[in-house]
């Protein structure tokens, strides 16, 4: 019977950790998406320096979570978002093409939403 309780406890622990992971990932992606949306607005109003600072801050925050994200999510998705950040930062430092820059920022936001979407225990994901 001890083995039964240990297994049930372990399953419960795994479920709880998965729920915590979804919650933590949701917080990270929501915060970063907000920052990137703000950067998009700043680009549209030609506030290039502020937009660069906002995006850089979002990128730094993303990098702070790199180990956690690599340990829990497919590396391909993480690397794609990483490249997106670098691409956006290069557009922002050039301060030339606001529409392209906004498109790259929108792509990062979308990829982060997909990252969270894939983790949710929805019927769509299960089946």
């Amino acid at each position: 019977m001890k083995r039964l309780w240990i297994s049930l406890a372990l399953l419960g622990l795994l479920s709880a950790l998965s729920a915590v992971h979804i919650h933590a990932l949701g917080r990270v992606t929501d915060a970063l998406s907000q920052q990137l949306s703000q950067a998009q607005e700043q680009v549209r109003s030609q506030q290039w320096d502020q937009a660069q600072a906002t995006t850089q801050s979002a990128y730094d925050r993303w990098e702070d979570c790199a180990l956690y994200l690599h340990a829990t999510l497919p590396h391909e998705d993480i690397d794609s978002i990483h490249s997106g950040y670098l691409e956006a930062l290069s557009y922002l430092s050039a301060q030339e093409d606001p529409s392209e820059c906004c498109a790259v920022l929108a792509r990062i936001i979308n990829e982060m939403h997909l990252l969270l979407d894939e983790e949710l225990p929805t019927l769509h994901n299960i089946f």
Binding site: S7, L10, L14
Partner: peptide, 15 residues
Amino acid sequence: IPILTLLCCATILSV
């Protein structure tokens, strides 16, 4: 995670 989950399920079934 899947290996741990399967082992837990197998233990539950065997008990």
